[in-house]
């Protein structure tokens, strides 16, 4: 059997795995920014991986639903997780820090991107982060943070509050 690392002309080629690692790919955000990323890192996104396999990759993959700022964050995440030598513990620590500084708005954008690009770990972490912020917070805090107007009438709200009356004790003040 012919060795796999020879092409039909008998020339040596870089094995595919290695090729993936070293080769770079360009991701293009909705606002036209271009980011270079290794194929191995990009492959952690199931969506990008599929695009690479379908070879719509002329080397540049347009991501019309992700803006530059968000894409930069996502790429940081992907690079860390594709890093050789990064232990699970390192990655966990990184994830923690990576998300901890983000505002709710930013978290939502990253969640959208994580979902669109199908990066499971990131998506789940971000969702968790978003709700962690909501724990022990009042309804008003949640409305303000997510910019939601209540469409309940005062009576309806009273009624619902009554239903679950016991669940509202011990909620933190809105100070933080």
């Amino acid at each position: 059997m012919a060795p796999k690392n020879k092409n039909p002309n008998g020339e040596n080629v870089v094995p595919e795995v290695q090729q993936k690692k070293t080769q770079a790919l360009i991701l293009k955000s909705s606002d036209g920014e271009e980011f270079s990323i290794s194929k191995s890192a990009a492959g952690l996104s199931v969506a990008i991986k599929n695009m690479m396999e379908d070879d719509c990759a002329g080397g540049v993959i347009p991501l019309p639903l992700v803006d530059g700022g968000t894409l930069a964050r996502v790429i940081t995440y992907l690079n860390k997780h594709a890093e050789d030598g990064a232990s699970d513990e390192d990655k966990r620590k990184f994830d923690e820090e990576f998300l901890s500084g983000m505002e709710v708005d930013v978290l939502c954008d990253v969640a959208l991107a994580g979902n669109y690009l199908d990066i499971r770990g990131l998506f789940h972490d971000v969702c968790q982060r978003i709700v962690n912020g909501m724990k022990n917070k009042s309804v008003e805090w949640v409305r303000k943070t997510f910019r939601i107007e209540s469409d309940f009438t005062a009576e309806e709200e009273e009624q619902i509050k009554k239903e679950y009356a016991w669940a509202w004790e011990g909620v933190d003040s809105d100070a933080d």
Partner: peptide, 16 residues
């Protein structure tokens, strides 16, 4: 879905 119950009850009051 990730909200603990008490926060979920809260979330149900946010909007319809």
């Amino acid at each position: 879905v990730r909200l603990p119950l008490a926060s979920l009850m809260n979330a149900r009051l946010v909007c319809k």
